[in-house]
């Protein structure tokens, strides 16, 4: 350890995280997003009011990693669970953390209607274009031509549809306060994503309503790419299909 007299800690683990280890694969952006969410909870000082909702998917254990109340939702229903929590107790700060299969396939109805009602919740949408937990099947966000275990020849848009533009879809609605798409492929984008998550949470605390932060994430295991190569792939390819930036900001 550095000597206390001469060195100070400039990067520490967020206090909203407990000591448990993440269960994600090596190099998976889920861990980074989990840490950014915890950082935002710290920054806003809402740890004692927060309920973290974990989805079904690779983040299924995530409710166990925060020093906050947590709940596990059934596949796709996190936005409905969040609605129930928030309507029952509006003082809670409710964070729904969901992947693309969860939010954009099986949970599309719950996602859109919670957004359309302007539920005062914060939705973190992890778009890694694949079903990671179940072994790399095609997701609603899988890119045209991208291979997955359930589209071994690549996604054929003629029969399998196009990547679902979730942030753009939610941005068409009247109610959401903040809709943005972020990436994590380099430190600058990580810093921007951190700010976006913080803003989304702050809007909830300030009573401004619904926010969705879509984050382009890697799945090095499912994509069969080394983590650093996967980040380069996001920069070169994925951000072309899913443009970054704020789509709605009614703060």
């Amino acid at each position: 350890m550095p000597e206390a007299e001469t060195m100070v800690k400039v990067f520490a683990r967020p206090t909203s995280l407990n000591e448990k280890h993440f269960t994600y694969c090596p190099g998976c952006d889920h861990g980074l997003i989990t840490r950014l969410v915890a950082g935002a909870i710290d920054k806003l000082g809402v740890q004692e009011r927060t309920v973290f909702i974990a989805p079904v998917g690779c983040a299924v254990f995530a409710y166990e990693w925060f020093r906050c109340d947590g709940i596990q939702a059934s596949h796709g229903r996190a936005a409905a669970v969040a609605t129930g929590l928030k309507r029952a107790n509006p003082d809670l700060v409710v964070i729904s953390y969901q992947g693309d299969g969860d939010l954009a396939a099986i949970g599309t109805a719950e996602t859109i209607h919670a957004a359309n009602r302007g539920e005062a919740i914060t939705v973190i949408f992890v778009n890694n274009q694949i079903y990671g937990m179940t072994g790399g099947q095609m997701a609603p966000t899988t890119l045209p031509g991208q291979r997955a275990t359930s589209c071994p020849e690549g996604r054929d848009v003629a029969t399998m549809g196009h990547p679902l533009p979730v942030a753009e879809m939610i941005a068409t609605l009247a109610a959401p306060a903040y809709v943005t798409r972020q990436s994590l492929h380099d430190p600058r984008h990580v810093a921007q994503a951190a700010k976006a998550i913080e803003k989304a949470l702050r809007y909830q605390v300030e009573g401004k309503g619904y926010s969705l932060v879509e984050i382009l994430a890697t799945c090095p295991t499912g994509w069969r790419m080394p983590p650093a190569v996967a980040h380069q792939h996001v920069a070169d390819v994925v951000t072309g299909a899913f443009p970054l930036g704020d789509l709605v900001d009614r703060g």
Binding site: K9, F11, H30, R35
Partner: peptide, 23 residues
């Protein structure tokens, strides 16, 4: 800032510690 497993802590000499790390 990049570590997905929050496995790294960083220290800096006191004189320079006021410099923001973010970004």
């Amino acid at each position: 800032q990049t570590c997905p497993d929050v496995a790294i802590e960083v220290y800096r000499e006191k004189a320079a510690a006021g410099t923001p790390t973010r970004g």
